[in-house]
Amino acid sequence: MTWRMPAETARHERTWMAFPREGITLGDEASEREAGYAAWTAVAHAVAEFEPVTMVVDPGEAARARRMLGAHIDILEAPVDEFWMRDSGPTFVVDDERPGVLGAVDWIFNGWGAPAWAQWRLSAEHGRLVGAAAGAELVSSVLVNEGGGIQVDGEGTVLATETVQLDPRRNPYADRARVEAEFARTLGAEKVVWLPRGLTRDYDEFGTNGHVDIVAALPSPGVLLLHDQRDPAHPDNAVTRALRAHLETQTDAAGRSFEIVDLPAPATLRDGSGDDGGFVDWSYVNHLVVNDGVVACGFGEPEADGRAREVLERVYPGRRVVTVDAREIFARGGGIHCITQQQPAVAP
């Protein structure tokens, strides 16, 4: 069998999410917790305008979830600790030699390198749980990886980051060749394009150590969306310029140089928290493509949010772009792409 991860632009059967539960990620204060519940709910409702949504909900949060989500969001009750479905859940793949067959890659999830603060052992079961609920064949992997650590074009190109898959806290014995071989087996990768690092904030105590889905995306084969921090007062100004220079030398699985489309960052530089002095990693790259649409991150900046919608409408022609305020999600370590996982549709 030959597994392949389709591009996010392929038709979806549904989107999977996990509902927040009380713990360090959600927040200590009641107001913080309510803001987190509301942010995840807003994303679910936005996605449900385009395609079905199933939410994995811890039994202790079931009553709240049903009240907030409403009847049009499906609920699957199961234990939850971390609620970033992109990372703890499966990566769905298809087998082009067997039409109608769906696969679910079950990466090992250890809470982004098993930091002392993370509670991840319950959600580490979500790959198998969600895969089974979707009726997918299990594609078991011994690689510690998260869905936010990869981006694909559906035609053999995979973006990854050296500080994620090669992180000794994740895969102490891995090298590029081993990771690339596993991506070939599980994702159909023919070419892995390695980024040397991610955004600055992503390396603080609560970061992922460089997830690519906040930095770059592949809206279509040969086209690469890149986070563009234009303010020299932000350390990511130097980071994104270096990443652009690096990616200009790279080619995809078909041997094409990338057409790089810059996606400017919002104007806000700091949020007043974080070990790195509070420089934000707010990024419009962290969007979700859905059936006939795109769910984009918003940051309360009408001009920047509107400019991002225009770029996304251009690189995803024919899709309606809607913006959901993502500040409360980013305050907890990620964005809209990080809390969602698409299940591709397969022919019957």
Rank of each mutant, 00 (worst) to 15 (best):
L122N: 14
Y316L: 15
V93M: 01
G210Y: 07
I214M: 10
T15R: 05
A114I: 13
H211D: 09
W3A: 06
P6H: 04
V261P: 13
I108D: 12
Y173N: 15
G255E: 08
D228W: 15
G222D: 13
V94S: 04
P348S: 03
L199H: 01
G113H: 04
G154T: 04
G272S: 03
T163Q: 13
A253V: 13
R14D: 02
L263E: 01
K191G: 09
R307M: 10
R270L: 03
G278M: 10
E162W: 12
V139R: 08
Y203E: 06
A7T: 04
N171P: 09
L69I: 02
G103T: 06
A38V: 09
H72R: 06
Q119F: 12
V43T: 07
G127T: 14
A132C: 08
T251K: 14
T340P: 02
E313T: 06
V346D: 14
D325N: 12
F206I: 15
S141R: 07
F83W: 14
D58K: 09
E155D: 14
S140Y: 11
P6C: 08
D204L: 07
Y316G: 15
Q343Y: 01
W194H: 09
E182Y: 12
G36K: 00
G103W: 05
G333M: 05
S141N: 15
G210N: 02
V294R: 05
D96G: 06
R332K: 07
T157A: 14
P90K: 00
G335L: 03
L69Y: 01
P59S: 06
G188F: 01
V285W: 00
S273E: 05
T200W: 09
V144C: 12
V139N: 04
Q151S: 12
H234P: 03
E301M: 05
R197S: 03
G131V: 03
E303H: 02
T91L: 11
R230T: 08
V321M: 00
E125D: 11
E328F: 06
L225I: 04
T323L: 12
L76S: 08
R256Q: 14
N209P: 13
D325G: 05
S257W: 11
S123W: 04
R21W: 02
F279H: 07
V223H: 14
G222H: 14
F330Q: 00
P196C: 12
A134T: 04
G306L: 05
L312R: 03
E205L: 10
V324I: 11
F83E: 06
L224W: 15
A48T: 00
W16G: 04
D175W: 09
R320L: 05
Y284C: 00
E29V: 03
D202N: 09
L226A: 12
S123N: 10
A296K: 06
A48L: 01
T163C: 10
D81Y: 13
S31T: 06
L243G: 04
R185L: 10
D275A: 04
D262W: 15
D236A: 08
A133Q: 08
G113T: 10
E190T: 05
R33S: 13
P266W: 10
R332Y: 02
A46H: 02
G147A: 02
T41F: 03
H337M: 01
A114C: 09
V285S: 00
D276R: 08
A30K: 14
D95L: 08
G222A: 10
S220T: 10
V290P: 02
G36E: 01
D228L: 14
R21L: 03
D58Y: 11
T15H: 01
H287M: 10
